[in-house]
Design a protein around this nucleic acid. Structure first.
Ligand SMILES: [Mn+2]
Ligand SMILES: [Mn+2]
Ligand SMILES: [Zn+2]
Ligand SMILES: [Zn+2]
Lengths: 146, 146
DNA sequence: TATCTAATTGATAATCCTTTTCAATTAGAT
DNA sequence: ATCTAATTGAAAAGGATTATCAATTAGATA
């Protein structure tokens, strides 16, 4: 399920939130980025073309997306605050260490592992967090050469 | 490979760091806790019995452990700054949502999944982050009753 | 379309959380 | 026992996030 700008607008309306110029610009910036962005990243990008955007509004909009379940938070070794737009269904991330590109994938083969682990440890497993990092197809070449 | 206080003392000496009263008390607090602790958690616990410990020293000691590869950082939904003492070999975490207990486990069944994902996406996978959350054996009962 | 009102905004201040600074202390070598 | 560089705690500085508040505005209403 791919999330579009239209979809987010609908979600905002359904939740009774107004469609302001500022919100839409933040949302567009998150949507149109292939890699993940921190609040500061977003603020800086927006600031170029829209000098009057407030940092607080960036934070507020991100929180809104999060509340509506449309935000994916990433946890790399260097930072736990960057995010992408994310489908509401459970999925995981493939993150390129070269260019930062984020690819979503669903968890299939995780189920058996989860079951056997639950049996071994007595845990009742409710959730999991899984992220692979490495080099995407295009960064792979650069990475080999250096 | 279980990490003991003696092991950490050896590591400190090998790295040329001094075995101070403060460092050892921080290390002991991390070792003796079943669940994960934030820097502030540690500071508060230590402060009771050792009122003169400085918060900066807690941070400094944690960084030292991290540098020596003896610190495991956890990423729960509520916080990305808590840690436990961790084996230097690659492993993952089972975190109880009830009591916070952390159980380490090694990644076996991950390999095939990783391979097929690499083939599908063209990624050269270098690392991954995996955490299961749920309820441990003892918290399981409480959780069912409520 | 003009009016109204509660939601939203940006600037600023206030709160964290973490690191840096620095003079005083101290672990461990001699 | 003496020495010295590493370490310490307190306080200041820095960075990130949140709260405050008067001014603005989206969208409902007439
Ligand atoms: Mn995602
Ligand atoms: Mn661990
Ligand atoms: Zn994290
Ligand atoms: Zn890449």
């Amino acid at each position: 399920m791919k999330i579009t700008e239209t979809g987010i607008k609908t979600a905002l309306r359904q939740h009774g939130y107004k469609l302001t110029r500022q919100r839409l610009s933040v949302i567009n910036a998150v949507i149109s980025s292939k890699d993940s962005l921190t609040p500061a990243d977003l603020y800086n990008r927006l600031n170029r073309h829209y000098p009057d955007i407030g940092l607080a509004t960036v934070y507020r909009t991100l929180r809104l997306l999060d509340e509506m379940g449309l935000l994916c938070k990433l946890h790399t070794s260097s930072d736990c605050n960057s995010c992408t737009i994310g489908a509401p269904d459970r999925h995981h991330h493939l993150i390129c260490s070269g260019c930062g590109k984020v690819i979503d994938f669903s968890c299939r083969s995780m189920a058996e592992f989860e079951t056997s682990l639950a049996k071994e440890t007595g845990f009742e497993i409710k959730d999991h967090l899984l992220e692979f990092t490495g080099y995407c197809q295009s960064c792979r070449i650069d990475h080999m050469q250096s």
